[in-house]
Design a protein around this nucleic acid. Structure first.
Lengths: 232, 232
DNA sequence: TTGACACCGAACCGTACGGTACGGTACGCA
DNA sequence: TGCGTACCGTACCGTACGGTTCGGTGTCAA
């Protein structure tokens, strides 16, 4: 278990991490903006705890699970909220959206892209980790004690919207889609894909669609969407 | 402030409340299954606190807000969870769904009923109280510490489904709608109406559609739904 | 070898909260 | 008038948790 350099994080703004020199061997910079290997381990432990116990866990439990001291946790992340926030950010940085076709759009390409997106989205939001994180974010949004809600909102619905709307616009430009308001079209797409799935999962209903069901639901949703907005 | 008879509640199952005799003057039995006037006051105070502070409040805060003693709260509701559960049940008992047309369905009647339902639903879920309750229920569903999630699920999405599906079936029977799977049709309707509104609200986005917007959204959603499933 | 550093593990502190107990008061009833 | 009951307000208790401090250990660089 090699130790790595450990930048002191400003939980709000990850900061350029004023670390001295390049750090020792294992300070790789893959995706977790300025996080050391060890820190990522710790954050993964936090995520695991969130799935298992849903935000009710103590900092001591994190220390136990990650085999590190509370002192280190507080030094790295400031306080419990900073720890949670960092964990959610870390998870968000891991999620990748599917590739969208960049060349000229065909009807089939558009349909495939939309379906792929729907499947990907449903797979994410029905996952244990997403459910746990969304639950925590919702709870925190209620008590206003942190910005977890913002983060999840940004990396959840908003991120989806930012990715989908250009695709819809491209579809319209290519004469494949017809709509007047892109936001409204997105709303329709989101609704047809997600429907009541997410809120039911968050409320504890244990519908867990398997990949086949997700494919079927996505296909139906895209069919409906194209029925509403398809041209030709 | 007149005191009323106070049945000891079994939080799980409200029970027929083994009260002695009819109770004194003010023990009216309007809607809150076996709750005395005073108890309903207390539960309303709890709901107010949930809106204001979102489940983070202490039992002492409830006692303060409702001008009653903690001892009484524990006597009536058992523990903090019982108190919350009773409050959510009490609120659920107050929500009324819109009337649906019972006579022969016309195309206009169906459209009006669907639109009315959509408006009603959006009005409910964008309300402060609904947001607060859903947040609490989601949080509790995560830590498995109570059955709040079930209650909200039953009185939320499931209740909507139970009310809408017969309407859809009636529409199909009257030749106004076409679909093969009622559950799938409901899914579509729910999605088109709610879309990302609820999850965004729960996550702290402060979109608060006013009645005019709700009407507009509902009308568009119903139009789309009828485009997908309308016959003729 | 020595010192600085980063970390672990455990003990510690203050507080907040769930839950209980108790004294005091208003009221119905015999 | 006196008793029982239902309630309020407050004090109290135990515990759990966030956050701090400290002693001890491994590592690296001078």
């Amino acid at each position: 278990m090699t130790r790595a350099a450990h930048p002191i994080l400003t939980p709000e703004r990850p900061a350029a991490a004023a670390r001295g020199a390049g750090g020792s061997a294992a300070a790789s910079e893959v995706a977790g903006e300025g996080l050391s290997e060890r820190q990522r381990e710790v954050l993964d432990a936090v995520l695991k705890l969130m799935v298992a116990e849903g935000d009710g866990f103590s900092v001591a439990a994190v220390a136990r699970a990650a085999s590190c001291s509370k002192e280190t946790l507080y030094k790295w992340f400031g306080d419990r909220d900073g720890l949670l926030t960092a964990a959610v950010r870390w998870q968000a940085s891991k999620v990748r959206m599917p590739k969208l076709p960049s060349d000229r759009l065909t009807r089939e390409g558009l349909e495939a892209a939309l379906t792929g997106f729907a499947e990907s989205w449903l797979t994410v939001i029905t996952g244990d980790l997403s459910i746990a994180l969304n639950r925590a974010a919702v709870a925190h949004a209620g008590s206003g004690r942190s910005r977890l809600g913002d983060i999840v909102l940004t990396n959840g619905p908003f991120a989806m919207k930012r990715r989908i709307e250009p695709l819809l616009e491209a579809g319209r430009a290519a004469g494949l889609l017809g709509f007047t308001d892109a936001a409204d079209a997105f709303r329709g797409f989101f609704g047809l894909v997600v429907a009541d799935t997410q809120i039911r999962l968050l409320l504890g209903d244990d519908i867990r669609p398997d990949p086949a069901e997700i494919q079927a639901i996505s296909a139906r949703a895209v069919t409906k969407f194209l029925l509403l907005h398809g041209q030709g």
